[in-house]
């Protein structure tokens, strides 16, 4: 692919980086990334990936924008209140970079549609807000061997990890099962500092770009924990569990299933 004069300008700061260059930028342009959730995390992840010129960006969300989202979900605005979040973010990202093919998938991800939705993408980003969906995305990515960049936020604390199926642990290696409903409070109950998903989402977007250009070390086998109040970044090792029910030697989970638990909106 030859760059247009506009693209040379738009991506100049990438092209002059030795680790990216024209070749890396072409990989970015050819990449297909699917983001589950166009909320607190999905907005900054999608925003930066659109700015970086990721060729195809899919956003999966079936919620509509509400006023209480605008404290942190930066791709939406008062003009898109009531609009589907994937559609709202698509509009924002297309305005930022018309090079990017943004696909709005106005569905709630579940065990029936997830494999079909993610199968054509190179990398999956988890920007969801609840454990059942987090585990479902993990299991589907392990089954299809899709790299997964997972993020989570609550109050003043956030976490990021990169899961490379077949090359490191998965989410179930850490905790086999999701915690029971009600044990971990949701953002609705516990609150979240509006800027926190910006920090965590930017880290997720960074991981995605590193995977695309194949440079640096992915955050695999580790959970990066950010504590905003104490200003600490801490890395916790996640050992691979050979008895893991999904990525272990004898996986017990053979097919995906949905949990009846309540869904909350970050």
């Amino acid at each position: 692919m030859e760059f247009t004069e506009e693209q040379l300008k738009r991506y100049s700061r990438h092209i002059i980086l030795p680790e990216v260059g024209g070749k890396g930028q072409q990989k970015i342009s050819a990449a297909k990334v699917l983001i589950v959730g166009a909320g607190g995390l999905g907005c900054p992840v999608g925003y930066y990936l659109a700015a970086a010129g990721v060729g195809t960006l899919a956003l999966v969300d079936n919620d509509a924008v509400e006023l209480s989202n605008l404290q942190r979900q930066i791709a939406h605005s008062v003009k898109t209140l009531g609009v589907n979040k994937a559609d709202s973010a698509k509009k924002t990202f297309e305005a930022l970079n018309p090079d990017v093919n943004v696909i709005a998938i106005k569905e709630r991800i579940n065990s029936k549609n997830i494999l079909e939705l993610i199968k054509d993408y190179d990398i999956v980003v988890d920007g969801t807000d609840n454990f059942p969906t987090r585990y479902l995305i993990n299991d589907a990515c392990v089954m299809l061997k899709k790299p997964l960049v997972s993020g989570a936020i609550l109050r003043f604390e956030g976490q990021v990890t990169t899961i490379l199926p077949g090359d490191g642990p998965c989410y179930r290696c850490l905790f086999e099962e999701p915690p029971p409903a009600g044990l971990v409070p949701s953002c609705q109950e516990a609150g979240v500092l509006g800027v926190l998903p910006g920090v965590i989402g930017a880290l997720q977007a960074t991981e995605v770009l590193k995977l695309i250009i194949g440079k640096g070390k992915p955050l695999k086998g580790q959970l990066l924990i950010y504590d905003a109040l104490g200003v600490n970044f801490r890395k916790v090792k996640i050992p691979k569990n050979s008895d893991c029910p999904i990525c272990g030697e004898n996986p017990k989970i053979k097919e995906l299933s949905d949990s009846p638990e309540q869904y909350c909106s970050i």
Binding site: L8, K9, S12, I16, G21, G22, K23
Partner: peptide
């Protein structure tokens, strides 16, 4: 600048 470098870098690549 910086397109002098951008174009030179791409040519070297």
């Amino acid at each position: 600048c910086p397109y002098t470098l951008v174009k030179s870098k791409l040519a070297v690549e």
